[in-house]
Design a binder for these strands. Structure first.
Length: 233
DNA sequence: CGCCAGGGCCTCA
DNA sequence: TGAGGCCATGGC
């Protein structure tokens, strides 16, 4: 299995995914390699989104982010000060709102040490380790922040990635670090590549590689261990 | 009605 | 270190 080839096939079918951020998004971006610089506010919004989307559909997260933006709460200092109850109400649409209100506050409180400057926080030596020390940030959320907000090449492994890879290779691998290592060792460490790749996995999982997969119509079935059995002979 | 979504924490072996 | 319970809304 060649990951680069897989990327090209997915990209040729689904095209640019243009994930993140929600606010102030560019309307037309011709290629995945030409993405504009993010503002500090957009970077913070991405961090919030990474936390809010834990086990939650993105549609519900967008609603919450728009609500927060209306109140000018894409702002770490303000999140620290707002009442937990009030914050939970604003993000109600994401589900798990009591937990996630705490998680957002924990993250923003961590930024206090950096005078609420996301850019200085992002400059710490072992940022991944520090992100993981924040309550509410696990490996996937940390890597999402590192990839989409910090824009450093950390491959994000989610449930979709595991499922698609399990079906393609025919081997189950639940270890996050091993799965991430697979991509890190076989792809150039390019944040924009990892960015689009992860988004394309999500898109493919929604279109074909669902829990109940639609193998017979899937364009990857010839090279997929699980999909091969659905090729008509 | 059931199932699932761009997971993580806590507890208990 | 791994399995299981818990968190909870909204779309289909």
């Amino acid at each position: 299995m060649n990951p680069k080839k897989l990327f090209k096939e997915l990209y040729s079918v689904y095209g640019l995914q243009n994930w993140w951020p929600v606010t102030g998004k560019e309307k037309t971006i011709p290629e995945y390699k030409k993405r504009t610089k993010l503002t500090e506010k957009q970077k913070l919004e991405i961090c919030f989104g990474a936390i809010l989307t834990q086990n939650t559909s993105w549609k519900n997260v967008e609603k919450a982010i728009i609500e927060l933006n209306k109140e000018n709460l894409i702002n770490a200092e303000k999140i620290v000060l707002i009442k937990k109850q009030k914050l939970a109400e604003l993000i109600k649409s994401v589900g798990y709102f009591n937990q996630k209100a705490v998680y957002l506050k924990e993250f923003c409180k961590h930024l206090e040490k950096f005078n609420y400057s996301l850019n200085s926080f992002f400059a710490v030596f072992d940022l991944r380790k520090e992100l993981l020390s924040v309550k509410g940030i696990g490996k996937e959320t940390a890597d999402s922040i590192l990839l989409y907000s910090v824009q450093k090449p950390f491959f994000v492994v989610d449930a979709y990635t595991k499922r698609i890879m399990e079906r393609i290779t025919g081997k189950e691998e639940n270890d996050y670090d091993k799965l991430q290592g697979f991509f890190h060792s076989r792809l150039e460490h390019d944040a924009l590549l990892f960015n689009e790749f992860h988004a394309l996995f999500v898109e493919h999982a929604k279109n074909f590689c669902r829990k109940k997969p639609l193998c017979s119509n899937c364009f990857l079935k010839k090279q997929c261990f699980h999909g091969k059995q659905f090729i008509l002979k």
